[in-house]
Design a protein around this nucleic acid. Structure first.
Lengths: 247, 247
DNA sequence: ACACCATTAGTGTATGACAATACGTCACTA
DNA sequence: TAGTGACGTATTGTCATACACTAATGGTGT
């Protein structure tokens, strides 16, 4: 038989409340930054208890639709990129995605980011990119710091692309991928050197507003990364091993 | 002065509770599918009230880390792709991302998906893809249904890629992008025709296990989509207008 | 005008209660 | 024996109420 079925869910009060607020946000009735009434007032507005309101608020909160800048102030919020990214990363970790999967996608996103950054990156952002690069060069010996700055470098490039979708999409992925750098450097000590060269080229290309060169170098850079992963034998390893998760 | 500061957040009990559960899940102590105790038991285990536990659970729930298959059963869960996707889509809508931004990224992801699908797509999935395509051809006159099946088609291709990162990454994006199809068909009636041709070619290429051809046609297909967007003058329009959101 | 203090309001948490209902058990029937 | 039905129980969703703590408010004195 091919009977489709699913538990029909009763509409719980806290869910209805959350849905209503969400709808009003999506529809524009409530605008980001706007202040919401206190819990008691919300409770009587919707004709439920404060506990119920609170459960709904907790959900909206962790969905990033509302937040409390200060404990007493509750306002409508724009979901933050980093929040969403860490959410996705977590999912990827739980799914045990492999370096291969991460890399295949990064091989498309990173060159695109570089290309767009070269095409339309704002000058102020370029300065910051250079700064990050300089710090990366300086941190040569500290692998952890190098990794952090590497991730930051690519994020900065992505932001220069002025494409928010791209930023949103690649962030969780790279959080995990570049983490792998720590694991490959022991086997591939020259990786740091090559990384610096590639980054320099990317910076140059962006400064010269040469999209094609930027794209090519980014592509080469990521491809190079793959070689590192291969040498370290991590291709089909889950991106984060149990031990690392422990931290 | 450049003193950085932020309200240091007290560790609220419900948050500590949620964090603890989350940590145990990430660390593998709690495995997906495993059953959790009831609320009362959790409450006394953690030495807090049931209300507190419930608030924490609401958060974990909307983060996709736990869920209730039936109202009485609470278990550890794997975050679901579609949940995450709709979360991201929502964020994109709120950010008013433009079709240009969506398209630029899709132009990278969709060809990759097609290529990988051709390279390593499992045969059963191919059958389903063909089925979707057939239904799409049949639905020629129903624009809404066409749009739905179009999205589904691309999702299926992505799933055939066997790359979960790619699936996760492209889903939210395409949810919005292909939605645009509804808006462009009035201006570009021949779009449906061209779409069917492209899809056929993609199916063929996948069946023939010809990655390059699959990639090329996917690329052409998305590029074609852009022409439609241009003709409809939507390039820099937010992907979903206020009116559409209303629904 | 400014610093200080008291008042107030709102949040986080706790206690306790109750209706609705999913689940397990057990007897009953075919 | 397997399936059905009834029943008791445990658990959830919701409610009401209370209290400590603290951020915001406003007034007071200098």
């Amino acid at each position: 038989m091919s009977l489709r079925s699913q538990h029909l869910k009763v509409n719980y009060a806290y869910r209805q409340f959350a849905d209503e607020i969400e709808a009003q946000i999506m529809q524009g009735t409530l605008k980001p930054g706007e202040r919401l009434p206190g819990e008691v007032e919300l409770a009587q507005l919707f004709g439920v208890t404060r506990s119920t309101v609170r459960e709904g608020l907790r959900q909206l909160e962790s969905e990033g639709l509302v937040h409390r800048p200060t404990p007493r102030r509750l306002e409508v919020a724009l979901p933050q990129t980093d929040k969403l990214a860490s959410r996705s990363s977590r999912a990827m970790v739980l799914m045990n995605v492999t370096f291969r999967e991460l890399w295949q996608v990064a091989l498309e996103t990173e060159p695109l980011a570089a290309e767009l950054a070269a095409r339309q990156g704002p000058p102020e952002a370029l300065a910051e990119l250079k700064d990050i690069h300089a710090r990366l060069v300086a941190a040569k010996d500290d692998v952890a710091e190098t990794t952090r700055l590497d991730t930051l470098f690519h994020t900065q490039v992505a932001e220069m692309s002025q494409n928010r979708v791209l930023c949103l999409v690649r962030e969780p992925l790279t959080l995990l991928l570049y983490q792998g750098f720590i694991q490959i450097t022991p086997s591939v000590p020259q990786a740091i050197e090559r990384q610096i060269v590639a980054h320099s080229q990317i910076v140059d290309a962006i400064e010269a507003k040469d999209p094609e060169r930027a794209r090519n170098w980014a592509h080469r850079h990521i491809q190079d990364f793959w070689r590192g992963i291969q040498i370290a034998g991590l291709q089909d390893e889950p991106s984060i091993s149990k031990e690392n998760r422990m931290k």
